[in-house]
Simulated assay, not measured.
Amino acid sequence: MLIGELSRRTGVPARLLRYYEQRGLLTSERDPNNYRQYAADAPRTVARIREMLAAGLPTEAIRALLPCADGADAGADPCPEVLRTLAAELDRLENTMAALNERHAALTAFRTASLNRAAVAE
């Protein structure tokens, strides 16, 4: 199928499909007119990419996971690469959450101190 058809079937803009291809997440063949031709299973691949992006995975991790996530069900086969990648991404997410919690506490303390200062000034 051509890129326009894949875009219509998946609801993903053609520009984004080209980006997925550029990042190594999606593949196409070129026909004699140099148009991209996608395989019949491309809509399923795009759906998997979108699912993983929605989970917060970066494209590098998705590229590693896609070969193990080609089934019709959600998730992926528990091959070693999947488990390693998911563990690394969970660690990254936990570190991000910890940093956000620290920022939240610092902002809350700053606001509390500001409110206390305003109350004393009245």
Rank of each mutant, 00 (worst) to 15 (best):
A106Q: 09
D77Y: 08
G11L: 06
D73L: 05
A42F: 01
L65M: 09
A74Y: 07
C68N: 01
R9L: 14
A106D: 02
S7A: 04
L25V: 07
A74W: 08
H104G: 06
N116T: 11
G4T: 04
L86E: 09
M52N: 05
H104T: 03
A119H: 08
L26V: 14
M52S: 13
R18M: 15
I3A: 02
G24W: 01
R50D: 05
T108G: 00
L57K: 02
P80S: 08
R44C: 10
N116W: 08
L6I: 06
A72W: 07
A121K: 03
E94R: 02
N34G: 14
P43F: 04
L93P: 01
A64G: 05
P67K: 06
I62M: 00
T112D: 14
R36K: 02
R117H: 13
D41E: 08
E122R: 14
E81H: 14
G71R: 04
L26M: 05
Y35H: 06
T10K: 00
L17C: 11
V120H: 04
L107A: 10
D41L: 13
V46H: 06
D70Q: 12
E94W: 10
P78T: 02
D73S: 10
A118Q: 09
R63A: 13
N95P: 00
R23I: 14
E94Q: 11
A74F: 11
N116Y: 13
A39N: 03
S28D: 04
L2H: 08
A121S: 11
P67W: 11
R48H: 02
H104Q: 10
A99W: 08
G71Q: 15
A64V: 15
C68Q: 15
P58L: 08
Y35L: 07
M1C: 00
E60P: 00
T10D: 02
D70P: 04
T45C: 08
L90S: 01
L107Q: 11
R84C: 03
L53V: 14
T59F: 09
R63Y: 00
S114K: 01
R18A: 11
L86M: 15
R50S: 08
D31P: 00
T27Y: 03
M97E: 03
A74G: 08
A118L: 14
N95M: 13
Y19S: 13
Y38E: 07
G11F: 04
H104C: 12
L57I: 10
L2Y: 05
L2K: 03
R15I: 12
D73W: 09
M1T: 06
P58W: 09
L107H: 07
P43N: 03
P13F: 04
T59I: 06
Y35F: 13
T108I: 05
G4W: 15
A119T: 08
R23Q: 14
R44P: 05
A76I: 01
E89A: 10
A118D: 07
D31G: 01
Y19I: 14
N33Q: 08
T108H: 15
R8M: 03
Y35D: 12
R9V: 06
D73P: 03
E29I: 07
E94D: 15
A54G: 13
R117D: 11
G11Y: 07
L100W: 12
R18E: 04
A42H: 01
D77E: 09
P67T: 12
T59C: 12
P67L: 01
L17T: 04
E89P: 02
L65V: 05
